[in-house]
Write a protein that binds this DNA or RNA. Sequence first.
DNA 1: GTCTATAGACTGATAGAC
DNA 2: GTCTATCAGTCTATAGAC
Lengths: 195, 195
Amino acid sequence: MDTRTYLLDCAETAARQRGYDAFSYADLAREVGIRKASIHYHFPLKADLALNLIERYAERFFAALDEIAGRQVSPADHLRAYHAIYRNALANGTQLCLCVAMSAGRSSLPGPVLDRVNQFHADSVAWLAAIFATGIRDGSLPSEIDPDAEGMATLALMEGAQLIARAAEDLTLFDSATASFLSRLNSRNTSRSSA
Amino acid sequence: MDTRTYLLDCAETAARQRGYDAFSYADLAREVGIRKASIHYHFPLKADLALNLIERYAERFFAALDEIAGRQVSPADHLRAYHAIYRNALANGTQLCLCVAMSAGRSSLPGPVLDRVNQFHADSVAWLAAIFATGIRDGSLPSEIDPDAEGMATLALMEGAQLIARAAEDLTLFDSATASFLSRLNSRNTSRSSA
DNA sequence: GTCTATAGACTGATAGAC
DNA sequence: GTCTATCAGTCTATAGAC
């Protein structure tokens, strides 16, 4: 693997485990096995590294969502797959989704990176809203819910559940926090006929 | 006001706006108007300050919850008041609940402080679960929900909604994320008779 | 591309005068 | 209780040799 990619991989893990400002070029150099001055060749400023990090992550993340959206399954199954992404990203309670990690350490984030984080949120809500809208249209989800609000609520639930589970390093807290979301998906498609 | 209290007030604001490791004794000294060495007289280690911070905050927070629980109103009203606390704590999208801020910067947190944060979460879930249990008992909330899971979900939703709203410094994102939670409270007490 | 060496600023923390 | 002065350690970042 080339050094640049290796640096991004290590930096991503560090940022997700400890936060953006809690890992340094010195840490990174030690782990990758080069000197910290050499990192500046690949990423002159730490802000460059951060921007590459979130952009690479968003690309990967939304590619996964595209793959999920393309599956010929119910909207509820799409949402279950979305849930699974956040659950897996937790890595047993040791690390957060990069976007959650960066939302958390907002203050020290370079402006463009913060913008990217907010766009990540907006894109996520748009994806979720589309799924909910489909579910309402085909009758598998109740029509009184608002797709946008439900999308925002789902994103907030996942981020909050990750935060709580990681604080205690206990994956079961994530499962507990999202249990009612999942069970609401089950009850819906058996409940009502049209309204 | 005595210096110690003033220090705690300024530190709390700083931690909630920028995070625990993003404010220094130098910042604090500048704001309070004493030298940073003097802060060490009141709080020898920054860990001492952090522990006092979270303990004072938890005391205030759960006193507010006690006051809410004592009101002679419906469980749904109790939950609406709980929601209002998190909404107000956001201060228009500029700062987080201290517990959310500390969950976020977990890595650099002294052990005892992290323990206190996790206890804060557990106590919150217990309080919420009791409210949900009451609502199920009196028939105002549907009986198929699990009080503990619903409590965890509610806490996660509030924390996640705060995180997203603060990232964009936009209170309306909090409102959007919690709208379906609130509307679920409305629909319940008019829907079913016993089951 | 990677290195050594260094700059300049900042961190939490301590010693000791007043 | 607050001060001055200082310490050792960390950080991001740069200059210039190889």
